[in-house]
Simulated assay, not measured.
Amino acid sequence: MSKPTSPLTPSTIALLTLPPLLWAGNAVVGRLAAPWIPPVTFNWLRWVLAALLLLPLAPWVVRRDSPLWRQWRRFTVLGLLAVAGYNMLQYLALHTSSALNVTLVASSMPVWMMVVGRLFFGVPVERQQVLGAALSTAGVLLVLSQGRWENLLQLRFVPGDAWMLAAALVWAAYSWLLTRRDESPDIRNDWAAFLLAQTVFGLASATVLAAGEWAWLALAPPAGMPTAIQWSAPLAAVLVFVAVGPSVIAYRCWGAGVQRAGPTLAGFFTNLTPLFTAVMSAAFLGEAPHAYHAAAFGLIVAGIGVSSRRR
């Protein structure tokens, strides 16, 4: 019998851990910015800034003779899912649901990774992956319950939680599509070019959605959502952060990590996001981490370890 092995190396672990850390920061500042800017517009501005950051790194991508235009179908799908779809749905969720509910729904990501992989990519679900998902989800629930399981009974789901469920499904589909390297080698081997290509087409979709949002706000503004951008230094700082960290750096690391470890295993790392979010929130409030944070971290890491073992 062969000895179990793991595709995780220290560099791969680092690549897959940094995005949840940055996305936790995105959730915190996204919730902070919710009263200042409509969610779809927030997402559009985030990726406009990200495109401006990426353009000097790979300007040839948008030239007339670029291979990008011959592969517009692939990058339209990737951009629609990652740039326009997932982030828009997440910001909508932060407007229409509690942070606790959004985090709980997002913890289903490893399950959706396995489901999408099995149904659409023919990848079988292994027993250790199911066990790993159970351990990882238990860690998330421990964070959300603050170490008291009866707190989970007080959760009340609202229609807005469906936005985050849709976001989880969109991200699972995007992650699996990253494994199909159909693009030109010039773009495939240049991370900035690959991300810029997605951003170009994603912004096209995001622009249409942002225009639709403003038409919606003009006709029937929903309660609690701002109908104009309230510009300020804090909002500018938030936009710069989400463009640099959760967008450029996190997407670069996530794409590289998925290529190394595969979407299913990478999906388990997303459950570090609620843990990082809880620790960040505690730090901003001046509170010390609790014992259940350490226990939750142990469960999530155990889930990652179990699911990564192969024969």
Rank of each mutant, 00 (worst) to 15 (best):
T103R: 04
A106E: 06
S108K: 01
W112A: 03
M114F: 02
V115F: 02
G117V: 01
G117C: 09
F121Y: 08
G122D: 15
G122Y: 12
G122V: 07
V123A: 07
R127M: 12
Q129G: 01
G132R: 00
A133W: 00
A133L: 09
L135Q: 01
L135C: 14
L135D: 00
S136D: 02
S136N: 06
T137P: 00
L141I: 02
V143A: 05
L144C: 04
S145G: 13
G147M: 03
W149L: 13
L152C: 06
L152S: 07
L152D: 08
L153R: 14
L155H: 06
R156P: 05
D161W: 07
D161Y: 02
A162I: 12
W163R: 08
L165I: 02
L165E: 15
A166P: 00
A166W: 10
L169S: 01
A173Y: 10
Y174S: 02
S175N: 10
S175F: 01
W176T: 03
W176R: 02
W176I: 00
L177N: 06
R180K: 09
R181H: 08
R181C: 04
R181P: 00
P185T: 11
R188F: 01
N189C: 04
D190V: 13
A193K: 03
L195T: 12
L195K: 12
L196W: 15
L196F: 13
T199S: 15
F201N: 00
L203S: 04
A204V: 12
S205L: 09
T207F: 12
V208R: 07
A210P: 08
A211N: 02
A211H: 03
A211G: 13
G212L: 01
E213G: 03
L217Q: 13
L217H: 06
L219K: 09
P221T: 06
P221M: 09
P222A: 04
A223L: 10
G224D: 01
P226I: 14
P226C: 05
T227M: 10
T227L: 10
T227R: 06
A228N: 07
Q230M: 03
Q230D: 05
Q230F: 03
Q230G: 02
Q230L: 08
W231G: 11
W231D: 08
P234L: 06
L235E: 12
A236F: 08
A237L: 14
V238A: 14
V238K: 05
V240G: 13
